[in-house]
Amino acid sequence: MSELGDVRRTTSELAWHDRWDHILARWGVNRSGHRVTPGLYALGHPTPDSHVFVTANYTLSFDALRSSLAGVDGYILVLDTKGINVWCAAGKGTFGTDELVGRVASTGLPEVVAHRKLILPQLGAPGVVAHEVRRRSGFAVEYGPVRAADLPQYLETGRATPEMRRVRFGLRDRAALIPVELVHILLPMALAAILLWLLATPLAALGAVTALLAGVVLFPLLLPWLPTQQFSSKGFILGGVMAAAFAVLVFVQGSDLALWRRVGWALAYLLAMPPMTAYLALNFTGSTTFTSRTGVRREMSTYIRPMALTFGLGIVFTLASTIVQWIGR
């Protein structure tokens, strides 16, 4: 045991309350409260020659690491990233050189292990200057695989395959992001739906809900199959398809309405819905790990104004159609 800090114990098993914590985290409940106390942890029965793995103090990060190390005796050095995951913390600098060097010192790690090697998750690299950590702490930084699940093979072979070093964004990864995005739009969506239901038509309320859900649920799922490269244009297309369905419904369903009034409603859907989906799609760029800042800037400068314009026009047509409806009663 080091004199400078306490070494806590941990295991590679996840209990039901860990899994419940993960569910809450995925749904955005108490977002920055899913924390582990920073410091040094002993996994299994480590010796001075055991590996040191570094992670963030976000429960999902810590749990992903330790649950992948079943049967391994080692140390886990937990950095204080304010409960934020490795990638985001690295981008902000909290999973960074200073915190790492400081934590090595404050836990007395040099007295605990005989070697001078730290295994870091690859996605911590944007925040860590490996050669500077070495210079300041004496510890060499080795970047392990992106996914903790690849650690057993990495430890066995001593190297990471190119595939282990790639970040993928498959269907499951995209789907995992849906709950937190959904929770964010629930209130605005409910308000819009109630407002439209009471003042306009039930179909208008459904249109708003459809456009929003398409952006938050459908878009992440269908992302790679939607045409065009940019998220905003993909979102416009997805929203456009939804809006077209509503426009068709207006003509089919409202046969008692005068043609010009049906055209008015159809235009309201066609103009208001796509930009809503497109805006949510644009925001999804922040949840991915392959859109670049330059690319997002370009996308914004291209699409923000068309989004605002078409949405504005859509609101105008919605208002006009609603007013005409009220006058007619």
Binding site: H131, L282, M300
Partner: peptide, 20 residues
């Protein structure tokens, strides 16, 4: 960040539309 000689350069930062 991890290039010891500065051979690689890039403008990094928050690429999130909402933050921008």
């Amino acid at each position: 960040r991890n290039c010891p000689t500065g051979a690689v350069q890039v403008d990094s930062g928050v690429g999130c539309a909402a933050a921008m």
